Each structure stands twice: as structure tokens, then as C-alpha cells.
Simulated assay, not measured.
Amino acid sequence: MVFTMFDNEKLDKILERDFTNVFRLGHINVEGVVMPKRFAEMKSEILNWNVNENDVWICSFPKTGTTWTQEMVWMIMNNLDFEKGKTNLGIRSPFLEVTALFDYRNFQKENTDFHPPPFIEDSLKFVKESSQNGPLCIKTHLPWPLLPKEIRDNIKKPKIIYVTRNPKDTCISYYNHSKLMEGYKGNFENFCELFLAGKLSFAPYWNHIFPFWERRNQPNILFLKYEKMIDDLPSVIKEVADFLEKPLTSENIDALSKHLSFESMKNNPSVNYEVVIGMHRKFKLIECEGNFMRSGKVGDYKAKMSPDIIQKFNDWTEENTKNTDFSY
């Protein structure tokens, strides 16, 4: 990929100053990917993961529609069991590497009454134990080079659903998420620079998308765009159900569409991450107001980004997609 020139030394200092805290102890570069430091302890186990081909992997760059897709996929795989769906999504569709994002160990030593959910405290252990109960919907933000070797080498071919979203709306959503849940203390302009320069966790952005885009015609990979989900959710539900070989009736599709509406998702405690947000606020790990799900709109960036930043994003997008067949 081609990237605009950035002052990397300056941005590294900003990342260290504004995006380290009691549970984010710093960042490292792994195979060209920015990751929280704790990922170094998890890397080998993930790369050598014993993949179950009956599992479904939901892959994405952060804040591109992952939670929405998780809930859709889990519901389809579980025959629209809305009652069972009241269980927290972190339990039903575990996030493989989430422990790297929230390294609570030092905080726990000094706060013995602090008990994070097991699906966050040791996510790899939780996923392994959960797999004993049947096929899983596994969420991951890991880009292609950091996925298990058995997937990358086509030794195992589980179904993979990749979802992406235009970078400007992604950046806005990632910024709000980072302040609300991950302890980012800086301003929006610096966050945009970090995003464009590929300095945030799971970045660079384009390097995340294209390996999946290039494999979109493999029978075990389905590539989705957030914008289409917004524009025509029922057709995407049908597409996903057919891909999973769990076809739905029109009545099922209508019911699931209502369940997946923005207002329904925003008010659903099993998917809106209030458990984690409440825990962070209770123990004063983060001082930030807001909700995990804010607007869900396409073009939300227009109300936040300055014309100068929008132009930077437009130029950067054109630069990185000009020799590809990809667009939003």
C-alpha cells in the first residue's frame, strides 16, 4: 500500500502520551501491524490455534459494524433464539484477542475486588472452553497476517465473514470508542493523524481490508460492506443466511431486521457493552461519558471532520485504492 508521509516520531510520542493507561501499557509492531503490548504474549498461541472448521469467524477492522454482524450471525446460526440471545454477546460470540486490549493485571493487584468478565480477563482460555459446547461465532480484529496459520495456509477453511466501512465514518466511530472504552486522552485531530498514519491498534487500515477483499471469491469467505447493511439490511441478512447454509423465510428476515435495527441494538444490554463501560466507570478507569452505539449513520463524519481533514482522508483513500477494484 501507498501512504502519505507522516512525522512518525511525533505520532509515536502522541500515541504513547495519549493512548497508554492502567490497562493499555503501550504498543508494539507485529508483522507490520500495530498492537497493544500484551499481544506479544498471545501471538504464538493464536498463530498455532487449532481451528474448528465448524466455527464462523467474524473479522473486521475496529468500528466497522462488527457487533452488528456478530449479532446477525449468531442469531442465524442459532435459529433466531431471541431468548438465548439475551445472554451477553461477549459470551455468545467471544472476542478472540480482547485480553490484549484490556490488560488489567497490574490494576487487579492493587484492587482485589475488581473482577472483569472471564471473556475479557483471559479470552483465549474462554474461547477454548466455549468451543466444547459446539460451533462458535468468533470475533477478531486481527488482520490476515496475524490469523491462525491453519487459516492462512488453507489447511482449515472455516466460514469467514469480513465487514468493512468507509474510513471517515470508521475513524469517527473509532475515536469515540477509544475515548469511551480504551482510555484515549487526546484530541480528535491527533486521532485522525494516528488513523491515517496506521498508528492505532490493528492498523494500517488498508492493509487490513485488501487481503480479505482479494480472497472474497473463496467459497468460505463473505465480504460485507457496512453501507449496504444500512441501505438494505434484509438483503444482507438473506445473503449471510445463505452463506451460512441456514436459509430464512421472509418472516424470519423481517423479525431479524427489527431485532437488528439501530434503536433495538442500542437499547439491548446484551450487545451495547454497558457491562464493560459500567465496570470502567465504577473503578474510575476511564472518565468519559457516552454510549457504545451512537448514531450508526453513513456520513456521520461530516458533522465532526473539518474540510481539511476530509480532504486528507479523500486524498489518502484515492492514493491507496487507485490501483485496485475496491471502492465504497
Score class of each variant (00 low, 15 high):
residue 4 T to N: 15
residue 5 M to N: 05
residue 10 K to Q: 15
residue 16 E to F: 08
residue 18 D to Q: 07
residue 20 T to E: 03
residue 26 G to P: 03
residue 34 V to D: 01
residue 49 W to M: 03
residue 53 E to Y: 04
residue 57 W to P: 03
residue 57 W to L: 09
residue 61 F to R: 11
residue 75 M to N: 11
residue 92 R to D: 15
residue 96 L to G: 07
residue 105 R to P: 13
residue 116 P to K: 13
residue 117 P to K: 07
residue 119 F to C: 13
residue 120 I to G: 12
residue 125 K to H: 09
residue 126 F to G: 10
residue 127 V to M: 15
residue 130 S to N: 12
residue 144 W to K: 03
residue 146 L to W: 03
residue 147 L to A: 15
residue 159 K to S: 07
residue 161 I to L: 08
residue 168 K to W: 12
residue 170 T to F: 08
residue 173 S to A: 02
residue 177 H to I: 06
residue 188 F to E: 09
residue 196 L to W: 04
residue 200 L to Q: 10
residue 204 P to M: 06
residue 204 P to C: 06
residue 210 F to L: 14
residue 212 F to D: 02
residue 233 L to S: 07
residue 234 P to Y: 02
residue 235 S to N: 14
residue 243 F to W: 10
residue 244 L to V: 09
residue 246 K to M: 12
residue 251 E to G: 01
residue 252 N to W: 01
residue 252 N to G: 13
residue 253 I to P: 01
residue 254 D to C: 10
residue 257 S to D: 04
residue 269 P to R: 11
residue 272 N to P: 02
residue 273 Y to L: 12
residue 275 V to R: 03
residue 275 V to T: 14
residue 281 R to T: 11
residue 283 F to W: 10
residue 283 F to R: 01
residue 284 K to F: 15
residue 311 Q to R: 03
residue 317 T to H: 02
residue 318 E to K: 06
residue 327 S to L: 07
